[in-house]
Write a protein that binds this DNA or RNA. Structure first.
Lengths: 338, 338
DNA sequence: TAAAACTACGAAAACGATTAAGTAAGCATT
DNA sequence: AATGCTTACTTAATCGTTTTCGTAGTTTTA
């Protein structure tokens, strides 16, 4: 590997000069600068990131924390999309993206924070984890630049899908389709879920829709079995809902199964709506009505924010970024028959 | 950040001694070793990965190349699963995983190989890319330890899903269900596709099934529109097939749409089979018959292999690792009515 | 008892970069 | 002509490790 020293030898100047020339400092003559750059190019010079990081304390590397204890993480469509967009964004800024090791089996396991320090990540993006984990808290409370996704911490930048507005839009759409008896199967208890649920209740109230307790079922995300169970329960009520909102698009498939089994048809007999906007939803028959979260925007905003936090900490405003989604009016919510 | 020097000051020994004690060298007295380790622990010492890498030329970091030009990559279920498993494996061995920057927008764009050298990755895993890309070739032909996924290069370790056996098993299963007229919509031209196609023809021959040219349609992966088109084409034939094999599970959804539109029923009127074994396939109604690729095993094998290549290059045998899949006999392939 | 061998540690160079401080030469200023 | 200011470099320290080569002191061997 050719180093600054090699170049300096060839050019007959000191390493300092080479370094400065390559980094465009102004105290190097134009002609020398050109010559050095040319030689560096010819010799195939590449800076050594380790040396650079050691000296400058900047790694140009962003750590991402994506726990997969629950076998989620990368296999989770929503987060995979967000991650994909995040990756593109930071890469366009010249940063790389490294996963923060969260294996418990690894030798010398250290906390997330310690791992971040060890690797010298310039910043960290956290998503899809248990935000109440002590180690996550430790990371959040450290001096490392952090952006969280879909969870808000005090004094930290968060990029959040607008679940409040999203649920409001979705329920309003359903209302406008004539439904007055809408059930909601919500996901496991997270701030995302709480926001959606609150918004569900508030919107219903605004629309003067009554929501019997039996219409709100506590399920969990991407759990098709549970979705089936909940659907069965809802449709078995004396006064069943005319529309069911699921915690996510996958869960809808569970709903569809039960509905089919009961000999009912979507959307004629019962309407359903999902949440997320996964690709396959718009290709099935009938096309899924759902709230499409803007994963592209969430990922890219998270990327822009973490880089801004790293590069200009003083002028970066610390406030949540809310990304709105969009009702994707497919065919699974039909005109309500009263 | 506390460094070796700080510890050496506290312990009253030299940095060399501290380094050696912490790394378990044998030329340090037992009691000193214990003392140093304890002090290091108390002071919250963390090695500096950059300094370590600079000195040792080992980064304990694995680069992964996952191109997403085609908006695939992380959003691709199959590869996301593989990646997830790869991540777990390398992390358990104490390695981190970093994406190889493939953004064309980034400042000072360099080739993949140069980026790998710059970051000092100990090894690289390549998947889901255009294997005929010059930059990929450059990387493959370098002295960097490389493992490829689902593509075989001379003298390099590849971890490959057994598409030959997979297609054979799938077609044989379909044959055993009584089908004699089986069509195959294949994906775009890659070595994976060619293997499957060859195996399809060969297996058909072995089973004495005739495959008219019109039964083999060249489509592409995860392209639902194309799958719909191809399905329509196949079902419009004078002598239509009784079963259609799709290039992947997603494409099946396209097939299902067309079939439904034509007023046909799966599997009574027409059978279909996918390939991959994505989660949702086993939850839809009727449950998808497909060939489940063993993504866990593919990812973990790739991880084990790259680490073996890094840590014991001499004794690592350079040969492809073939991972077999499994027919997942759902309900979309029924008994053939002749 | 002198030589050889071990044991336990230290000094110093090195990895490849960055950067503050110094310096020599050339030029303008008074 | 002495001074100061630029310009264009160089020197040398430094980041935090690892590792080779010493070197005292102790123990074993002949």
């Amino acid at each position: 590997m050719v180093s600054l020293k090699d170049i300096s030898a060839v050019c007959g100047v000191s390493v300092a000069t080479v370094s400065k020339a390559l980094n465009g400092h102004k105290d190097i003559g134009e002609s020398t600068k050109r010559h050095i750059k040319q030689v560096a190019e010819e010799m195939g010079y590449l800076p050594n990131s380790a040396a650079k990081a050691l000296k400058t304390n900047r790694s140009y590397n962003i750590g991402v924390l994506f726990a997969d204890e629950a076998h989620n993480g990368l296999k989770h469509d929503y987060f995979a999309s967000v991650l994909d967009s995040l990756k593109k964004t930071v890469e366009a800024h010249g940063y790389d993206m490294t996963f923060i090791n969260c294996s418990n089996e690894r030798p010398n396991r250290t906390s997330y924070l310690n791992h971040v320090r060890y690797r010298g990540f310039d910043g960290v993006v956290i998503a899809c984890v248990d935000f109440y984990d002590d180690e996550v808290a430790e990371l959040i409370n450290s001096d490392i630049p952090v952006v969280t996704i879909d969870h808000l911490f005090d004094n930290r930048i968060a990029v959040i899908s607008d679940n409040v507005q999203g649920m409001k839009d979705l329920l309003t759409y359903i209302y406008e389709m004539g439904h007055r008896k809408v059930a909601y199967i919500c996901g496991n208890d997270t701030s995302v879920t709480r926001n959606r649920l609150t918004s569900f209740y508030r919107t219903a109230e605004e629309l003067h829709m009554e929501v019997p307790d039996s219409y709100v079922v506590h399920g969990s995300y991407r759990d098709i079995d549970k979705a089936e169970e909940a659907t069965e329960q809802l449709l078995g009520l004396d006064d069943p809902p005319t529309c069911i909102i699921y915690p996510d698009d996958f869960s809808c498939f569970g709903g569809l199964n039960v509905i089919k089994k009961l000999g009912l048809k979507v959307p004629d007999d019962i309407s359903i709506a999902g949440y997320d906007g996964i690709m396959i939803g718009s290709y099935i028959e009938p096309q899924l009505t759902t709230l499409k979260q803007n994963t592209d925007s969430i990922g890219s905003q998270a990327g822009e924010k973490i880089i801004s936090l790293i590069e200009k900490p003083r002028t970066t405003v610390i406030e949540p970024v809310i990304i709105s989604g969009e009702v994707c009016n497919g065919e699974t919510v039909g005109k309500a028959v009263r």
